[in-house]
Amino acid sequence: MLAPGELEAKLAPNPKALTAKRWAMVVDMRKLDEQTAEKCIEACHRIHNVPDFEDPIDPKDKVDPAEKVRWEVKWIWKEKYEHAFPGQAEVAIPEKIHKLNFLLLCNHCDNPPCVRVCPTKATWKRDDGVVMMDQHRCIGCRYCMAACPYGARSFNWRNPRPFIKSEDESYPTREIGVVEKCTLCAERLAKGQLPACVEASKGALTVGDLNDAKSKVRELLRNNFTIRRKTQLGSNPQVYYIV
């Protein structure tokens, strides 16, 4: 009979998995209209069981908007230019840029401050650049939230389960007291699928291998001027925006 210790050897990555040496994402704001952005957010939050405090299973639990701001969990969301890129607001910027809603998510930094501070390795950077989160390891100290300069991390201030109307049973829900964030759909990449937001974006979002000169991401970076959020902080974010 098998002994418990022999199990590690019996687990391996799925051969169909999408792999990269260094994952990166390009958001083409020229192609990202309001509805598409909403679709991306909806797709992500639905399959990852992200709670909506304004839309609980039992209407009695509904949370008013002021409280919702405090407890909100978001993996991908919209923000105006001056909030997405604070301190970079130019004086005479085209009107359309001011009106744009930028799609923000975890930047999967190459030098992530959140990983540097985590006292339990509950968040760490994988070899392929994805900044992962182990919700069973997290002690809920929220040091990573203080460290992240992008506001990409959410904490479960209360039980999220009463606020998930249509639970996707193929993905776990979270408990009280742990931190969560975008994982670049690690569970989908492992099955050979693109991240949910990319799939829903009608070509506005692209992920690919930054280390592969022939990749789609590199082609976009070669042919377009891109900006990234708060590069001066040295975290080396890996989400690029074409404006």
Binding site: R70, F155, I176, G177
Partner: peptide, 13 residues
């Protein structure tokens, strides 16, 4: 209930 019982939030964590 969780730490939601406090005044802390996503922004002031």
């Amino acid at each position: 209930f969780g730490l939601g019982i406090t005044g802390m939030s996503r922004d002031v964590s």
